[in-house]
């Protein structure tokens, strides 16, 4: 058996110690309980504190479990919270772009649509909330695969079906698409999932800079593209929307 990392073992012991009672503990109590030199114990505590797993009471100097640790258990962002925060921004995106807007999150091996704003043209449309879309060919899916490692694994492991002649299926080409997505900050889907349909999407981050979803516009390729290229003002509008939602979730400027 490979040797375990000693400092991680010690950190785990500290967390257990702090979780054991209601009391806050001082540095020397922690050090002596775990049979550590004060300097060693302090170094580990400081690291845990920087990660938010431990907090130090400013007056007594004693340590207790940090809020971050409590969040770990249910750290995922509630998708309904995400929708509520995104509502005004996605409405505005639909209005300014003239196209329909979708908000997607990773779910199993695909993109779960959690919010959908109709194209503002009064035509008959059906709410697509709850629908699943593929990860490897849609703009939303590519954004998730590019930014979220879990989504990336799913996208790499599944068989990437060719929905149209333009669908990228080869492993290297697909990685190339994801590199490009990360470099540009957005992903596109020009007739790669549905004939005649193009989309552009950008990532939404939470306050810890974790990718929590993707937002994008979808429409007829004739409207979304011009001279074979995605319309730049559309890309800008999608990215503005993604940034606005991220800001609402507490992410800093980036």
């Amino acid at each position: 058996m490979a040797r375990n990392i000693q400092s991680l073992e010690r950190a785990a012991a500290m967390l257990r110690l702090l979780a054991g009672g209601e009391r806050r503990l001082g540095l020397s109590e922690i050090a002596s309980a775990l049979d550590l030199a004060k300097g060693t114990a302090h170094g580990i505590l400081r690291t845990l504190q920087a990660e938010g797993f431990v907090e130090q009471d400013p007056t007594s100097g004693r340590y207790q479990l940090g809020a971050e640790l409590l969040r770990l258990g249910n750290s995922y962002l509630d998708v309904h919270e995400l929708r509520a925060r995104a509502l005004v921004w996605t409405d505005d995106l639909a209005r300014s772009s003239g196209e329909s807007v979708h908000l997607g999150v990773l779910h199993q091996q695909g993109v779960l649509i959690v919010h959908h704003v109709f194209r503002p043209d009064d035509s008959r449309q059906v709410l697509e909330v709850g629908a699943m879309q593929p990860l490897h060919s849609t703009a939303l899916g590519k954004v998730l695969s590019a930014y979220d490692p879990v989504a990336h694994n799913e996208a790499v492991e599944v068989e990437r079906e060719a929905f149209t002649v333009r669908t990228v299926t080869g492993p290297e080409e697909f990685e190339g698409v994801l590199d490009l997505t990360r470099a540009r900050g957005y992903a596109s889907d020009v007739e790669e999932t549905w004939e005649g349909v193009a989309a552009v999407a950008a990532p939404i981050h939470d306050r810890r800079r974790m990718p929590v979803g993707a937002v994008g516009v979808t429409g007829a390729v004739e409207r979304v593209c011009k001279d074979g290229e995605l319309r730049p003002e559309l890309i800008a509008a999608v990215r503005d929307c993604a940034r606005a939602v991220s800001r609402d979730l507490g992410a800093g400027r980036f």
């Binding site: 409405d91 639909a94 959908h116 704003v117 109709f118 503002p120 009064d122 449309q125 709410l127």
Partner: peptide, 8 residues
């Protein structure tokens, strides 16, 4: 001016 954003 009224735009439908969603319909159930």
């Amino acid at each position: 001016n009224w735009r439908r954003a969603a319909e159930w």
